[in-house]
Amino acid sequence: MLMLVSQREDHKHNFGRTRELADLLEPLVDTAKPQPSFGPSLLRFYAAESGLKYLLSKNLMIPFEYEIRDQTMPADTSDPSFPRKVEGYSHKLDQMLKRLKVSAARVPIPTGPFKTVGGYNGGQSFRIHEAHEAWRYGLEVDPDDQAALGKFIADILSYLEDEIL
């Protein structure tokens, strides 16, 4: 079974649309609840992921899988420590930033692990690339970790706005 194909420009447009949707959703969130911002956080995570994947393809010419399959672009073999296709980065925002050589001064990458509060085992640990799962499943993220992850993603979005828009 083939996956749906999203091309480079789809990622660019999705970056903008998803970021805007998160901004529209933010004022509608009930801030009286303990985890008020998981919806906008999830959308911002996906916006950051789309924008970074767009830049990997546009700036570094890292191909998408369909381009390799369709033989429209050669595979990048210059650095074996990084995935050879955009999809290989999955949700690893930190790895994409490193590949794009974004300075730590521009986008500081917080160290984890991060934690959820309550629930399974009284809380769980996760890494940056798993944050979307915590938000997608509506898990309560430790408030300090939520703030650190929120700032990290806001920094990525600011960087992407400068690079894409």
Rank of each mutant, 00 (worst) to 15 (best):
L24Y: 14
M61L: 13
A47T: 04
T72G: 10
S158W: 04
L24F: 13
R19Y: 14
Q7F: 07
S125G: 08
M73Y: 05
T116V: 03
D155I: 05
I68Y: 10
I153N: 07
H11N: 05
A147N: 09
K92H: 15
I68F: 10
I156N: 06
G138E: 05
A47L: 04
Q146G: 01
A134Y: 01
R19C: 07
D10N: 14
N59H: 14
I68M: 10
L2G: 02
Y137C: 07
S78P: 02
A47V: 03
E26Y: 14
V5Y: 04
F82G: 02
S78N: 13
D79R: 14
P63M: 09
Y46T: 02
A105M: 06
A48H: 01
P83T: 09
S158V: 05
D145Q: 01
A22F: 06
V117G: 06
P143Q: 06
P36G: 09
V141W: 02
K85V: 12
L100K: 06
P83K: 12
K101R: 15
K33V: 15
S50V: 04
G39N: 10
R69G: 01
I156V: 15
E87I: 10
P143H: 06
A148D: 08
D30S: 12
V117S: 11
P83A: 11
K92L: 07
R44C: 11
E87F: 09
D145R: 00
A134K: 06
P80R: 13
L157E: 03
L139P: 00
A147Y: 03
R44S: 08
S103M: 02
L60E: 14
D79C: 08
K12P: 00
P83W: 08
V5K: 12
S37Y: 15
T116F: 04
P40N: 12
G122W: 05
Q35P: 03
L165F: 08
K33R: 14
G138V: 09
S125H: 13
A131L: 04
G150A: 14
H11P: 00
M96N: 08
Q124C: 03
